[in-house]
Simulated assay, not measured.
Amino acid sequence: MKISLERKSEDFHFVAINGRGDQVHIDNSSVDNPKGASPMELLLMGVAGCSAIDVVAILKKQRQQITSYKAEVSGDRVEIDGAKPFKDIHVTISLEGDIAPEKAQRAAALSFDKYCSVSKTMEPGVTIHYKVVLNGKEV
């Protein structure tokens, strides 16, 4: 896996490109009118996307009918020697459809405990907390 990064402005706007040509705009979130996501926001997006792929794949294999998948991810940061890494990440997965509650919860557990490479990369320094909301009710 490889990406390239190119500066697009005199400030902090960059474009990262993967081997397939997909582009992501990156910017400093503390400037006026940033032109992309900050690197820390991208980490949260990575957690959301990685776990979403896992959960959907697991539920599809179990023939569960997913009509909607949404996730909200937030991170708590702590200052360490001038840097501000994440300490805790909170994920809420909201599913709708004909899905057994125990299968939804198990799919999330398998993602965060076993399969999600992004989450596993952040261990042991970051604790990921998650909950599943199925058809409007927390599982």
Rank of each mutant, 00 (worst) to 15 (best):
M1I: 00
K2A: 09
K2L: 13
I3M: 14
I3E: 15
I3V: 15
S9P: 04
D11G: 12
F12K: 08
F12D: 04
H13V: 06
A16H: 11
I17V: 15
R20W: 06
R20F: 11
Q23M: 06
Q23E: 15
S29F: 09
D32I: 01
D32S: 11
N33H: 14
K35V: 08
K35C: 01
K35A: 03
G36M: 12
S38C: 03
P39H: 03
M40E: 06
E41N: 06
L42S: 09
L43K: 04
L43A: 06
L44P: 06
G46V: 11
V47W: 05
I53D: 09
I53G: 14
D54L: 08
V55C: 12
V55D: 05
I58S: 14
I58E: 09
L59F: 03
Q64A: 03
Q65M: 01
I66Y: 08
T67M: 05
S68A: 14
K70W: 00
A71V: 13
E72G: 14
V73G: 06
V73L: 04
G75K: 03
R77Q: 13
R77W: 07
V78N: 06
I80C: 04
D88P: 10
I89R: 07
T92P: 07
T92W: 07
I93P: 08
I93N: 07
S94P: 05
L95R: 00
E96C: 06
G97D: 10
D98P: 08
D98E: 15
D98I: 06
D98K: 11
D98L: 13
I99G: 13
A100D: 15
P101C: 00
P101T: 07
K103D: 02
Q105M: 03
R106P: 00
R106V: 01
A109S: 10
L110R: 07
L110N: 04
L110D: 04
F112R: 12
F112N: 09
D113R: 02
D113H: 14
K114S: 09
K114C: 09
Y115Q: 07
S117E: 14
V118I: 10
S119G: 14
S119D: 02
K120M: 02
T121R: 05
T121Q: 05
I128F: 14
Y130L: 04
K131Q: 15
K131N: 05
K131D: 13
V133W: 01
G136L: 07
K137C: 03
K137W: 00
E138Y: 02
V139C: 04
V139E: 11
V139F: 10
